[in-house]
């Protein structure tokens, strides 16, 4: 995928504006998964901003983020790094195919064991 398109796509999916980041590192200063990550929350922000996204897509860091939202809560500029990480993660999953949902797919997934909420959030996530 074209680098510029990829950047725009991730920004659109996440709703995050990485330009707002002032490089303070508070997100990485607060992240409980920091030591597990190769790229840290502030790096996700600055690398997406500079379009350097391939290394992120290939990194394990994507799956180390706990989605605890501590970074979102504390970022002084309202950047919401976790949402950006989520968008990169989605992109990685989509590249492997079969990652989209349409309303028609839902009935087949209905199962007493799966909470309704999970379906709703999956739907929210995989239709972006």
């Amino acid at each position: 995928m074209n680098k510029k398109y990829l950047r725009e796509d991730i920004i659109r999916m996440s709703g995050v504006n990485p330009k707002k980041c002032m490089r303070c590192g508070k997100c990485s200063g607060t992240c409980p998964a920091y030591d597990e990550m190769e790229y840290h929350p502030h790096q996700f922000v600055s690398m997406v901003e500079s379009g350097d996204i391939e290394p992120l897509l290939e990194s394990d860091s994507l799956y180390r983020c706990l989605t605890c939202f501590a970074c979102v809560e504390r970022c002084p500029r309202g950047v919401e790094p976790a949402k950006l990480i989520e968008a990169v993660r989605l992109t990685a999953i989509r590249r492997q195919g079969a990652n989209r949902l349409t309303p028609n797919d839902i009935p087949a997934m209905l199962d007493d064991e799966i909470p309704q909420q999970a379906l709703v959030s999956a739907f929210r996530k995989y239709t972006k």
């Binding site: 997100c27 200063g29 840290h40 502030h42 002084p76």
Partner: peptide
Amino acid sequence: GMVGKITPEGKKLMVRASDLLDGKQ
């Protein structure tokens, strides 16, 4: 780097922060 979280622990204050130049937490 910025301090992300401070947690009182006994008589100490655990300060978690990033060191952006050394790439450390």
